[in-house]
C-alpha cells in the first residue's frame, strides 16, 4: 500500500494545480509581458510600437536613474548592516525570561505591525521643521535646526531612521529564535574554561547563528531594495532627487509621465540588480564556509 502512495501519478499533480495556475497567470505571464512592454513605446493609454532596446538605453542614460541607483545602494548599504547589528544586539540583550526583557521584545517588534503610511506620518511629524519633535529638541538645547527632510544627505538619513524603526522587529526575533537553538553544553564547556563574555560571543554564539545572520541579511537586502513608500511619503524623493529610490523612479516614469514602456524597462533592471545582490551575498557566504571548513 505504502508503495502505491509513493508511486508517481498524474493525479498527485492536482495538488499543485491551484498554485501553479496563479503562479503562471500572476507572476510568469506578467514577467514576460513586462519584458515585452519594455521593448515597446507604450503609454498608460495604449499605443504599442516595437522599439527594441531603446527604452533600456533611455533608462541607462538617464542621470536621474543613475542617481536613484546610487541612493538605493547607499540606503541598502547602510540600513541593512544597521538592522543586522542592532537586531543582533537587541536579541543578545533581551535573550532572557524576565518580565522586563519580554516587555521590551514586544515593544521592539510592535512597530513592524504598523502600516507604512502610519510610520511615515509619525516620523514626518517628528522631523518637520519648526513644529516637529526634533525641532523642539534642537530649539530647547539652542542648536542650529537641521532640515531633516529637506537637506541633501539628511533626507535619505531620515527615511533610513524611519525604516530601521519600522523594520527592526523581525531581525531581532529571528536572532532570538536562533539563540535559543544553540546547544547549552557549548556554554557549559565555556563556563568551565572560564572564558570571557567576549570570547563566548565571538567563539560560540556568533558562529552558531552564522546561517541566521546570512538569512536576515538576505531578507533585508531584498526588502530594502524595494524601498518606496517611506521615501515617497516623507520626502517625495527630494531634495533634488537625493532620496529618490529606484522603485519611486519606476512609479514616476509609469504613472506621472505615463511611459510604462520605459517604466517596465527600469523595473527589469531593478530585478537584475536585486538578483545579482542576493546571489553575490549567497556566493560570499558559501565561499566563506568553504574556507572555514
Amino acid at each position: 500500500m505504502a508503495e502505491s502512495y509513493r508511486r508517481s501519478r498524474w493525479t498527485n499533480g492536482l495538488f499543485v494545480v491551484p498554485y501553479l495556475s496563479v503562479f503562471l497567470t500572476l507572476l510568469v505571464f506578467p514577467l514576460g509581458w513586462g519584458i515585452w512592454l519594455s521593448l515597446n513605446k507604450v503609454d498608460l493609454f495604449g499605443g504599442e510600437r516595437f522599439i527594441g532596446l531603446k527604452n533600456y538605453a533611455r533608462v541607462l542614460s538617464d542621470p536621474i536613474f543613475g542617481q536613484a541607483v546610487k541612493n538605493t545602494l547607499i540606503f541598502v548599504g547602510v540600513s541593512v548592516p544597521t538592522l543586522v547589528i542592532l537586531g543582533l544586539f537587541l536579541a543578545l540583550a533581551l535573550n532572557k525570561t524576565t518580565k522586563g526583557s519580554s516587555f521590551l521584545r514586544g515593544l521592539f517588534f510592535a512597530s513592524s505591525i504598523l502600516s507604512v503610511t502610519i510610520v511615515t506620518l509619525i516620523w514626518r511629524i517628528v522631523f518637520i521643521p519648526n513644529d516637529g519633535l526634533m525641532a523642539l529638541i534642537f530649539n530647547y538645547f539652542g542648536w542650529q535646526p537641521i532640515g531633516f527632510l529637506s537637506t541633501t544627505g539628511w533626507s535619505l538619513f531620515s527615511v533610513g531612521v524611519a525604516t530601521v524603526w519600522w523594520c527592526i522587529g523581525l531581525p531581532m526575533m529571528l536572532f532570538l529564535a536562533a539563540l535559543q537553538q544553540i546547544p547549552k553544553d557549548l556554554y557549559e564547556a565555556a563556563a568551565l574554561d572560564n572564558a570571557s563574555r567576549w570570547r563566548v560571543l565571538t567563539r560560540i554564539t556568533l558562529p552558531s547563528i552564522k546561517s541566521t545572520i546570512m538569512l536576515v541579511a538576505i531578507i533585508q537586502v531584498v526588502m530594502q531594495f524595494q524601498l518606496f513608500g517611506q521615501a515617497q511619503l516623507m520626502t517625495n524623493g527630494g531634495p533634488a532627487g537625493s532620496s529618490r529610490p529606484i522603485v519611486m523612479y519606476i512609479y514616476e516614469i509609469g504613472f506621472l509621465r505615463w511611459d510604462i514602456g520605459m517604466g517596465a524597462a527600469a523595473s527589469q533592471i531593478l530585478f537584475l540588480i536585486i538578483l545579482c545582490a542576493a546571489m553575490l551575498q549567497y556566493w560570499v557566504s558559501t565561499r566563506k564556509e568553504e574556507t572555514d571548513a
Binding site: 512592454l37 531594495f225 529606484i246 510604462i260 517596465a264 523595473s267 527589469q268 536585486i274
Partner: peptide
C-alpha cells in the same frame, strides 16, 4: 527571486 516591482506594471 522575482520582486513585485518587476511585474507590477504588466
Amino acid at each position: 527571486a522575482v520582486p513585485e516591482q518587476a511585474v507590477i506594471i504588466a
